[in-house]
């Protein structure tokens, strides 16, 4: 456990990567969105305005998942850290960061509602589909989404570490075939209408639950892959 914590501390030696950059991205997205909302309002725009900028840091987490592995895993090996400790320390640290950021999203959402959408009737944090749920679902939703994206990056990077380019190729071809299969199935059976109806019935709680399951499966997959990964 001691070395797991040390791995988290190692990942934080450059605080920019796990903390600074996500906050900067979020901050920029927020400020830009507010400016745009204000311009629209000033020019006679009517009704509630919605911005999707809050997801910006989440996409960064996809890149972070890849980076945390490809760049720090070989270094952690030189620091005589076991793969298990590296994995746990890195995922643990990301979990803590994601949780803190999710709570921050929730609090900003409350503030957004309280200020009447920053005085502009704008929605940046508190999108109704999510924000109309209870606290646990809201925070859980953000958290699961962040972890999910991080894990996608992490899994792709572990596959690369273990099987190199061949592994990635096989993975993406398999994924492509799977998607094609689903699309073919839906198209030949003329099920697209049903599909969209079904997709629209999803709630934030449902997404959180099933996203969480997928994230856990990917976490397990990337751990098992990392167990036998080598740096050279």
């Amino acid at each position: 456990m001691e070395r797991v914590i040390k791995v988290a501390r190692m990942q934080l030696i450059n605080k920019w990567v796990f903390i600074g950059l996500p906050l900067l991205i979020l901050g920029c997205a927020f400020v830009f969105s507010l400016v745009i909302f204000w311009i629209v309002r000033e020019n006679g725009g009517e009704g509630t305005m919605y911005g999707g900028g809050a997801q910006a840091p989440m996409w960064y987490f996809l890149a972070l998942g890849i980076q945390a592995l490809t760049l720090t895993f070989p270094f952690s090996q030189a620091m005589s850290v076991s793969r298990r400790s590296f994995y746990l320390g890195t995922v643990l640290l990301f979990g803590v960061c994601a949780l803190a950021l999710s709570v921050f999203y929730y609090l900003m959402g409350l503030l957004e509602k309280a200020t009447g959408g920053w005085g502009l009737d704008a929605r940046f944090f508190a999108l109704e589909w999510v924000a109309d749920n209870n606290v646990a679902v809201q925070i859980g939703f953000y958290f699961v989404l962040m972890v999910l994206l991080f894990m996608v990056g992490f899994l792709i990077a572990t596959i690369y570490m273990r099987w190199r380019t061949t592994g990635l190729l096989v993975f993406f071809i398999a994924l492509g075939v799977l998607l094609l299969g689903v699309i073919a199935l839906l198209t030949f059976n003329q099920l697209w209408g049903n599909f969209w109806t079904w997709a629209l019935t999803w709630t934030a709680a449902g997404v959180t639950l099933w996203g969480g399951v997928v994230a856990v499966v990917m976490a397990g997959g990337s751990y098992l892959t990392l167990r036998k990964a080598t740096v050279a």
């Binding site: 450059n14 920019w16 990567v17 980076q67 760049l71 720090t72 070989p74 270094f75 030189a78 740096v231 050279a232």
Partner: peptide, 9 residues
């Protein structure tokens, strides 16, 4: 390693 990799930044 002789070809040791370090985190990019």
């Amino acid at each position: 390693r002789e070809s040791q990799k370090y985190p990019d930044e």
